[in-house]
Amino acid sequence: MPNQTYVLTMARYNLWQNENLITAADTLSAAERVQDRGAFFGSINATFSHLYWGDMIWLSRFAGTPAPTVGIPQSTGLADDWQAFKADRKAFDQRILQWAHEVTPDWFQGDLSWFSGAIGRDVTKPKQMLVMQLFNHQTHHRGQIHAMLTAAGARPGDTDVPFMPDEYLTM
Rank of each mutant, 00 (worst) to 15 (best):
T5D: 15
V7G: 03
L8P: 13
M10G: 05
A11N: 11
R12Q: 06
N18R: 08
L21G: 10
T23P: 05
A24I: 03
D26E: 13
L28C: 13
R33V: 15
R33F: 14
V34F: 13
V34D: 15
Q35H: 15
G38E: 12
G38H: 07
G38A: 04
H50Q: 11
W53Y: 15
W53Q: 15
W53E: 15
W53M: 15
G54M: 14
M56E: 15
M56N: 03
I57D: 02
W58V: 09
S60R: 13
S60C: 12
G64S: 03
A67Q: 12
A67N: 13
P68V: 03
T69I: 05
V70A: 06
I72W: 07
Q74F: 04
Q74W: 11
S75E: 15
S75M: 02
A79Y: 02
D80A: 12
D81K: 04
Q83R: 08
A84E: 09
A84P: 11
F85A: 08
K86T: 05
D88C: 02
A91K: 09
F92W: 08
F92R: 06
D93C: 06
Q94V: 07
Q94R: 11
L97E: 10
W99K: 00
A100F: 03
E102N: 13
T104I: 06
D106I: 04
W107M: 10
W107Y: 09
G110R: 04
D111M: 07
F115W: 15
F115G: 00
G117A: 11
R121L: 09
D122A: 05
D122P: 06
K125E: 11
L130F: 06
M132Y: 08
L134R: 12
L134D: 00
N136A: 07
N136Q: 09
Q138E: 15
R142A: 00
Q144L: 01
Q144V: 00
Q144W: 01
I145N: 00
H146I: 06
L149M: 12
A151G: 10
A154E: 01
R155N: 06
G157L: 01
G157K: 09
G157P: 04
D158W: 14
D158L: 13
D160W: 02
F163P: 03
P165A: 03
D166M: 03
E167D: 02
L169G: 04
L169E: 00
T170S: 09
